[in-house]
Amino acid sequence: MHDRETGWFRGAGGIVWQMDLPLPEVMADQLTKGYLTRVNQDGSPYAEKSADEPEQPPAANASKAIWVGYAHRVHGVPIDDAEALTKHDLMELYGSKG
């Protein structure tokens, strides 16, 4: 019997697989950046929070990986393009303007 919490994830190839939670650091980084997407077992979108709740920009002290993921998810920036920018550039382009 499997007594660990697990989650289902889809990678770039579209394959959905189950992984133990919490994810290993390398996989968590891939999830944060958007290379992996958490899904339900059937591959349907996994919703952790209300869909009508807009995602806010990360805090200034958040890691670059979090900013890359944010730019990809919220602003549609291709992951490789977001990775090529510095954290400062990501903050300037996609952070709060206020």
Rank of each mutant, 00 (worst) to 15 (best):
H2N: 07
D3P: 01
D3I: 06
T6G: 01
T6L: 02
T6W: 06
G7A: 03
W8I: 01
F9H: 05
G11E: 08
G13F: 07
G14W: 14
G14R: 11
I15C: 09
V16P: 00
Q18W: 06
M19Q: 12
M19A: 05
D20I: 05
L21R: 01
P22K: 02
P22Q: 03
P22N: 01
P22S: 03
E25Q: 13
V26S: 07
Q30L: 00
Q30I: 01
L31D: 05
L31Q: 05
L31V: 05
G34D: 03
G34L: 11
L36C: 07
T37Y: 05
T37I: 11
T37A: 13
T37Q: 10
R38W: 02
R38H: 00
V39P: 12
N40P: 04
N40Y: 12
G43E: 11
G43F: 13
Y46I: 00
A47S: 09
E48D: 08
K49H: 14
E53A: 08
E53D: 11
E55M: 11
Q56E: 14
Q56L: 10
P57R: 11
A59M: 13
A60V: 00
A60P: 04
N61F: 02
A62R: 05
K64G: 00
K64L: 06
A65E: 03
I66W: 08
I66F: 08
V68E: 01
V68R: 06
Y70K: 12
A71I: 00
A71Q: 10
A71D: 06
H72Q: 06
V74D: 08
H75W: 14
G76A: 10
V77K: 08
P78Y: 07
D80R: 14
D80T: 07
D80E: 15
A82G: 04
E83T: 02
E83G: 03
E83W: 04
A84E: 15
A84R: 14
L85Q: 06
T86F: 04
T86P: 05
K87Y: 01
K87N: 04
H88G: 01
H88S: 11
D89K: 14
D89P: 08
L93Q: 11
G95K: 11
